[in-house]
Nucleic acid binder design. Structure first.
Lengths: 212, 212
DNA sequence: GTCTATAGAGAGATAGAC
DNA sequence: GTCTATCTCTCTATAGAC
C-alpha cells in the first residue's frame, strides 16, 4: 500500500524533467536553481546529476525538447478536430487565453522565456529552441500547403501566426490581460483566411464586411 | 588632457545604466551579474550601490524605463518622417531586421527578454515592463486614431503590430535569420493597411490583388 | 539508484578607507 | 564620490555512504 499517490508513481527522471520544464518556463533558465527543481520534484539533488550527467544545460535542453513536443501535440490535436485551418488557429489562441487566465498568467509558451535568455549565450540551448520552433512552423506550413497555399507563402504565414502567438503571450503576461491574446487571435485568423481566399479564387469568394 | 575618450566623459551613473540595460537585454536579468555590469561600465561595484541603493532590482527597473523611452523615441522619429502609418510600420520592422543583422542577432527588444523572466516573479519589474509596453501601445494607438480608426480598433491594431514585432524578434533570434522579421513586417503592414482601408471607405477604394 | 554533505565558485550586498 | 575588501548566501557540481 505504499506509493499510492500519483506523484510517487511517476518515475524520478520524469518528475525532475517536468518540474524543470515548468520552472524554466515560468521564471526563466538562469533564475531557476537545480535545488529548487529538486525540491519541487521531491527528488534529491544528486538524482538530477544521476539522470542528467550533463548538469543544468542538459536538463534545460531536454526541457525544451519536451516543451516543443507538448505544444506540437496540442496543435495537432486541435488541428485534427477543427474543420479548417482558420478554425484551428482560432481555437489555439482561445485555449492559450484560457490557460493564461487559469494560471494567473504564469503558464505561457514552454520555449519563449528560455529562448530569449539563451539566444546569445548558449549555442546548445539556442539550437534546442530553434528545433522546437521549427517543428511548429513545419506543422503549420504543412497544413497551409494542404489547404492550397504555395509553400513559400505557407511558411511566411506560419511565421506570422507563431509570432503573433509569442508576442501575445509576452504582452498578455506583462499587462496581465488577455486583451492582447484575443486581438492577436483575431489577427492570425484574418491573415490565414485572407491568404486562403487569395490563393483559392475558385468557388464563391464571399464579400465580407460589406453590408447593404 | 585626461579623460578625452568618449567613454570617460559619460557620467558613471549613466555608464552603469547603459551597460546594465545592454546586458539585461542580451542575456536576461537573472543571468547578468552586478559584477559583470561593473566591469563592463568600468565602474567599481560600490558605485552601483551608491547610485542605485535599491540594488539590482532598482537598476533593472531603471533599465526597463530607459529601454522603453529609447524604443518610443525611435518609433516617434520614424513616424514623424514617414508619409503614413503603414510606411512607418514598414520602416520600423526594416530597421529591426538591420539591427539584428548588424549585432549578430544580439540586440532585439530592450524589454522582452527581461519581461518574460520577471512577469511571474517580480511585481516591480513586471510593472516596469508593462509601463514600457503601454507607452508604445499608446503611441501606436494615437497614430491609428489620427489616421481615422476608431479608438478600440486602433488599440487592437497596436497590440497586433507590437506582438508581431516581439514574436519576430524572438523567432529571428532563435532561428538566426531575419526571415521571420521580414514576414512579420509584411503582415503588420497588411493589417494596418487593411484596417485603414476598411475604416475610410470614402475616396477611391482600390481593388488590390485582382488583375484582369 | 537514493540521499547527504560539502567543495569551489560566484552571486548580491555592505563597510569603511581614501 | 571612488574604490577595495569582505560578508553572507546560493549556485552548480561532486564525492561517497548507504
Amino acid at each position: 500500500m505504499s506509493k499510492t499517490r500519483a506523484e510517487q508513481t511517476v518515475p524520478t527522471r520524469e518528475r525532475i524533467l517536468h518540474a524543470g520544464a515548468e520552472l524554466f518556463r515560468r521564471q526563466g533558465y538562469a533564475a531557476t536553481g537545480l535545488k529548487q527543481i529538486a525540491a519541487e520534484s521531491k527528488a534529491p539533488l544528486g538524482s538530477i546529476y544521476h539522470f542528467y550527467p550533463g548538469g543544468k544545460e542538459q536538463l534545460g535542453e531536454e526541457a525544451l525538447i519536451v516543451g516543443g513536443r507538448f505544444f506540437l501535440a496540442l496543435y495537432e490535436q486541435i488541428a485534427k478536430e477543427a474543420p479548417d485551418l482558420p478554425t484551428a488557429v482560432d481555437r489555439f489562441f482561445s485555449g492559450a487565453a484560457e490557460t493564461l487566465l487559469e494560471t494567473s498568467f504564469a503558464d505561457a509558451c514552454p520555449i519563449a522565456t528560455v529562448s530569449g535568455e539563451v539566444a546569445s549565450t548558449s549555442e546548445r540551448l539556442r539550437r534546442a529552441s530553434e528545433a522546437a520552433f521549427e517543428s511548429w512552423l513545419e506543422a503549420l506550413t504543412d497544413d497551409g500547403c494542404a489547404a492550397g497555399l504555395p509553400p513559400q507563402e505557407a511558411r511566411a504565414l506560419a511565421q506570422q501566426a507563431l509570432a503573433l502567438l509569442e508576442g501575445a503571450f509576452l504582452l498578455s503576461r506583462s499587462l496581465r490581460s488577455v486583451e492582447p491574446m484575443d486581438a492577436c487571435g483575431r489577427a492570425a485568423v484574418k491573415l490565414v483566411s485572407d491568404a486562403l481566399d487569395a490563393s483559392a479564387p475558385e468557388g464563391a469568394p464571399d464579400v465580407e464586411g460589406r453590408s447593404g
